[in-house]
């Protein structure tokens, strides 16, 4: 149902979108089995073309007001990109030179992580609850690879993690934004985040949470895929599937450009 809604939503103004959603979420099926929150992405597929320079991602959803019993509630949305291993090196001064001395390998670092919420995260839920659902960059789990040579002691690891988070934040790849959820009417909400071009292709998963009294009482999920198409896709698949051929093409292309330049300048 939501893919259809999303397809329509792309073309509609927020107001019309709100009306359509309200209709779908509550008019037909308001039985006890209905979810307390339903949500989706305005667009599920994004394509990387030569002109790609990051993209805005619009997420929306609706809450069942009846089941919230008129009590105040909060919405928190996390969006996370594909995970990859990351190495953090620390330099030390040895004989006057700054040398890479210690490193820590993190096994699953999302290349993009955003937390969008109605209010500051600390006001929404206690630390234990936030930790459970990874609501916040400070509670994002960054597992460390076992059995590492030259790894820093447990005590020193926090500064490696802090350095990783600091650099990710500076690149706009770790984002935390309170008051980022816009409501239309009483039950419909929408939120938006910017995915920088440095957050590469892959599967992005959005988790939507409804919180009441500091507890998560309902959740929903949406998936967004970012992939290369056209020349971008062809080049990167050739590079990984036929690496020798790719290398020869790279050389041939360079030889052609070099030869052509000589030919052209000889004529003039």
């Amino acid at each position: 149902m939501f893919s259809r809604v999303a397809a329509i939503a792309r073309k509609l103004t927020p107001a019309v979108l709100a009306g359509t959603l309200a209709l779908i979420a509550f008019s037909s099926d308001a039985s006890a089995s209905a979810n307390i929150i339903e949500a989706g992405a305005a667009q599920n597929q994004f394509y990387i073309e030569p002109s790609y320079d990051g993209t805005s991602i619009v997420l929306f959803g609706a809450v069942d007001r009846d089941r919230l019993k008129g009590e105040p509630f909060d919405i928190a949305v996390t969006l996370r990109g594909p995970v990859q291993p990351v190495v953090v090196w620390k330099k030390d001064r040895r004989a006057g030179l700054w040398v890479n001395s210690q490193r820590l390998i993190f096994d699953g670092v999302p290349n993009y992580f955003a937390v969008l919420s109605t209010r500051p995260l600390d006001d929404i839920a206690p630390l234990a609850e936030r930790d459970r659902y990874e609501l916040g960059i400070d509670v994002l789990s960054l597992p460390i690879r076992d059995e590492q040579k030259n790894a820093p002691s447990k005590l020193d690891r926090s500064e490696f993690e802090a350095a990783l988070v600091r650099q990710k934040k500076a690149a706009g790849l770790f984002v935390e934004e309170a008051r980022a959820i816009d409501f239309f009417g009483v039950s419909l909400f929408r939120t938006k985040t910017f995915l920088p071009a440095a957050a590469g292709p892959g599967l992005y998963v959005a988790h939507f949470y409804v919180l009441q009294g500091g507890k998560v009482i309902g959740d929903a999920t949406a998936r967004i895929r970012l992939r290369k198409i056209g020349i971008e896709a062809r080049l990167s698949s050739t590079a990984s599937e036929h690496p020798w051929l790719y290398g020869v093409i790279a050389v041939a292309l360079a030889a052609f450009v070099g030869g052509a330049t000589s030919f052209l300048t000889r004529r003039t």
């Binding site: 990351v86 090196w89 350095a163």
Partner: peptide, 8 residues
């Protein structure tokens, strides 16, 4: 002092 790199 810290450098962050994709391990891939």
């Amino acid at each position: 002092i810290f450098s962050v790199r994709s391990a891939g």
